[in-house]
Structure formats: C-alpha cells, structure tokens
Design a protein around this nucleic acid. Sequence first.
DNA 1: CTGAAAGCGCTTACAG
DNA 2: CTGAAAGCGCTTACAG
Lengths: 335, 335
Amino acid sequence: MKRTIATIRDVAVHAGVSVSTVSRVINGRGPTHTETTSRVRAVIAELGFRPNPAGRALKSARSDCLGVVLPALSDPCHAGTLAALESAACGYGRGVMIACGGGDDSECAAVERLLAHRVSGMILTVCDAGRSDALAMLDREGVPYVLAHNLPRRSAESGVGVAVATDPDAAALLLVDAMTGHGHRVVGNVASPEQPADWACRFADTLDRVLRARDLPPVLRFDRSALRAALAGPGAPSLLWCGGAVTAQALLRDLRDLGRMVPGDIAVIAGEGVVAPDLAPDLAPDLAVIASPTGAIGDRAVELLIAAIAGDDPVASVLLPPQFWPGQTLGTVRR
Amino acid sequence: MKRTIATIRDVAVHAGVSVSTVSRVINGRGPTHTETTSRVRAVIAELGFRPNPAGRALKSARSDCLGVVLPALSDPCHAGTLAALESAACGYGRGVMIACGGGDDSECAAVERLLAHRVSGMILTVCDAGRSDALAMLDREGVPYVLAHNLPRRSAESGVGVAVATDPDAAALLLVDAMTGHGHRVVGNVASPEQPADWACRFADTLDRVLRARDLPPVLRFDRSALRAALAGPGAPSLLWCGGAVTAQALLRDLRDLGRMVPGDIAVIAGEGVVAPDLAPDLAPDLAVIASPTGAIGDRAVELLIAAIAGDDPVASVLLPPQFWPGQTLGTVRR
DNA sequence: CTGAAAGCGCTTACAG
DNA sequence: CTGAAAGCGCTTACAG
C-alpha cells in the first residue's frame, strides 16, 4: 500500500496554476514572490511534494549526483575522505554515489558503473594518476572530475585532471624538520600502500633533495619484510617513516616482535594515509603523524567539481599544507 | 567539447530497427536471440551506448539506486559495512547512494535526502531502532528498508523493519564462554557508543541472565571516566568488555596511563563495533574481539532489500553468529 | 517477432 | 507574470 507520490501536476492542480508556474517556483526563477508563489509553496508542503530527479535529469542528460571512486573503503583514511565528501556534497544539494576500486582494473569498473548512472562528475583517488586507464576513460567521455589525494595530471593545464591533495613538498620538509628537530639523522622508509604512487613519488624526490641539501644521508628504503636487516649494522636509521597509519601500526607491532622499544630504540612517524582524524586520538594516540587535512580536501574537491560541472573557468589544483601531529613514537635522540 | 551521448534512438537507427526492439534487447525480454539481437548488440557496443537511468526511472518512479544511511563514516566499523554493501549492491547492478547521520535529528535529514533522490530502498544503521523518527518516516512513505546492525523492529512481522545483525544472544554467550574459559569471573562493561542502543540493550539483558544462570556476579557498568574507581577495591572486574574496537583502543591507553598492565593486571575484550576486518590484524593485532561478520551482514542486507523492493513475500530478519577473534588482551587468570 | 504510439515528471523556449 | 506545448530517453501495452 504505497502512497501515491505527488507530482508537479498535482501541485499545479491544487494550487490552481500551471505546471510551468510550479516549476518556476521550485527553481526560483520567474515570478517575483507574489501571492502565487506562497500559495504554490503551501501546496508543495501540504502534499509533501518532492521534485522527481529523474524528470529533471532527463532534460539535462545528467543526474544531480556526484560519483566518488575510492580504493578499499576499509582503510580509515579513505573512509574519512568519503565522509568529508559526502558532507560537502550535501551542502550543494548533491547526492553522492560511491564505487570502490582496488587494482587499476576495478578502478575502471568503478568508473564505468558511475558512468552508467550518469553522475554529473566524479571525485577519485586512484593508485597512480600518472598512468590510469580510469582517468583516460573519463577524459574520453568528457565527464568532469577532480582527484583527491593524487597529484594534478599534466593535462591539468587545460582544466581537466585537477587535484586536491596535501602538498608533498611541504610534507617532505615537515618530515625533515621533525626528524632533525628531534635529533634524528637517518630515516628509513618502510613501503606502505596507503599513498597513491604519484604522490609518494613526488614526496620521495623532494625528501631526497632536502636531505641532500642539509648534508644528511639519503633515505633507506625497504619493505616491512626486510625490517630486521635494515635495522642492523652501522648507518641504520633511528627513525622509520611510512606512508600510512595502518602500516605504521603494523610496523609498531613488528618492532615489538623484534624486541625494539619505540621510541627508545627506534622512532616511528606516519604520513598522509591517516586514520580518520576524529578517531586518531583513540586509535593511534601515541603515533606521530604528518597528516592530510582530510576534511579540507573533501571540501575543496567538491567545490572544484561543482565549479567544473557548472562550466566555470578552468579550475586550478589545490595543494594544502599537511598537519603535524606530535606523538611519542617520534622520540628524541640525545646528542 | 563533450561527446554527444548515444540514445536508444541512435541505436535503433543504426541497427535499422525500432526503439522498442532495442529496448527489448537491452532488457532481455522479447525476441529470441535471432540475428536482430546480435545486430543490436553490436551497434550498442559500437556506439558505447548506455541506457539513461533517468529515462528508465521515469517509468518506475524509482531510481535503481539503493540508499545507505550510516552513523559517522569515520568509524571503521561502519566504513566496513559500507564497503560490504557497495560490493553486494554492485552484484545486483545497483548503485549506492550514501548519506551519513549522527544524532537522531540528522538521521532524518539523511533519510530525507535519500528520499528526495528517489532511491528504491534503504539500508540503515540507526542509533536506536526502537525509537527512530527516521524509520517512522520510512514507514510513512512506504519505502522498503532493511536495518543493519540494529535489531528487527516489532512491526517487522508485517515485513517492514527487518534487520540483519549479529545475534546478540550468541554474542553474550560467547563473551561468557570466553571469560570463564580464561578464568575470569567478574566482567566490567565500559560504555561505548559504537553499538546501536537496541542491540546493546538486548545483549546486556542476555549477558546478565547468562551470568546469573552460571552463578557469576552481575556486570559492573561504568563510563570510561569512572575507570579508576571501578578497578579499585574488592570485587573489581578482572576483565573489561566494551562495545567497539575504537573504545577498546582508547581503553587500553587509559589503562596504561593508570599503570595497569594488559592482560597481566586486567584483561580487555571488545565487541560488535569492529574495525574493518581486513585491517584488524594491523590496527588491533592483540585485541580480543567478538566481531560482527560485516561482510555477511552487508550481503544479506542487500539481498533482503532487493527482495523487498521486488515485492517478494515478506522477508524475515537474519541474525548471524558473531566471530571470536582471540587476542592477547583477553589473558588467562591462573586459579 | 516487430513497430507505432502513449506517457513517465520535469524544464524550457515561446506566446500571451 | 503566466500558460500551452514540445521534448528529454526510456518502457510498455497494443496492434500487426
């Protein structure tokens, strides 16, 4: 016994006007607020009328939904971004359709699904914005999109492929400042999957450059599995850096299993792929983090996408400063 | 320079048939697979034609999207559920629109937003299914919905308000077995917001009953802020239970700050509001958890909702057995 | 097995 | 300031 749903026609009849007039009232263009308008408004409220987006979409050929493509949502970092995106989109009266990727293969599948639903634009975090079939598809289709947590693509000059991300150079500087400030001179980098490849690459380049400029030894890179070996011998790092908080937590466990005290024997700092900010104090209370401003990234990404959809002047990418969360795991080396 | 999008009419013209025929091919009802069908299929592929959901929706008055309403997505538990739902919905060719709630107030707002988008049904996790304005609204609108992680509503007999959740009785039993199996006789319950009130209530009732039946002292309930006092004096619990993994992590920190060793001085076990299962080994390696089968809950919830939308016979609620993740924090009390 | 036609709910020029 | 009419892309009886 479903309720019949009121249509614009019902409203028109009840208000004693034409559907055109109702449409104008709904969309706020047309008659100045005379008695007619308020009468129509009253009927709309009375009938609980909601404009059917399908009817609308048929004209514009686009739904009023934004598509969001993210890697595994199980990662709190991406879940936090989604929360921010949803909240921001809501502010523009836009719905959010979600599709999760994984490998590059399913990134395409995710985009394809969203395309089938005719989202008016997409926000994506991809494995590597530099080489992404999913983005190529989007370019081909001419659907506006904004990257989140990836770096801008080269083609971004033309206005497509803009990105909103943490500034990788600033993050690298922050790391060096944090390490030297606490007396560390050698940093090891444990590979972590949380960061998009393009971002991580740029970050690593800058990091190496800054270290060299300060006469510090280059980064020692290795996998979690090579941890033991990497910590042995002279020249071993006194600080370990890894891309995301999830890997960091795993790393802390590895270190404990190896009998290394943190930060007594070895310090740890995580970056970028953060846990959801509001949970961080609970989930990772002691972990030092160079964090992404997830909320701001979500806000700006939606803002840019809305502008792109509206066909405004080509929007420019945004790099936001990272945030430093002090944590005990960073430790302090006595000279 | 957007590509013009192919319509069903374009396909019809190119294939030299009528739109009706194309429609039948797309929806797989009508002509048996003659030459016509394959010709139409070829043209569809060639043109990259995708049926416009808006055109479709206009007939059915419903989009082919499922709405999902969850409390803060920042909680990994809910993010995990969303991931499962998205994946399951995808299997049915359904898109997922997400809206986040929070207080009961914004639960309504979330439902309202999804309603405006004409989702064909919703899956929700609400604060308290027993008293929810959001669910009342759904009942009023006659939109099918399924609860996830909440318990079935009374009205569920009529087929509305069915739920998919972890079996609270089984979870309570599991807790008692785990505690007695490890030598614990007194359990304290730290209030945690992760669990929906209706579920937590039922769980607590059963827990008390089972403890009584086994001649064990009743649960000591208190807030995190009262932790110190609760642990002092005789009759203090040797095991702490809290609803979710996030609170559990915070609790572990509190205990450390109080100088209590886990599990040497005091044991900890978490329940229901789990971190995303695939991250658990990294984020909470040592934590003992009575976990919800998030993936299965997502699968079943979508399955039930799809059935409800199709107007199948009233579907029944599903209670799934919890999973026990052993962890060092549970400890063992020597007799 | 196939096609012509109506209609889903809305917006948008175009007349008044 | 307002209304009649066309049309967005699709599905669905209804004829052939």
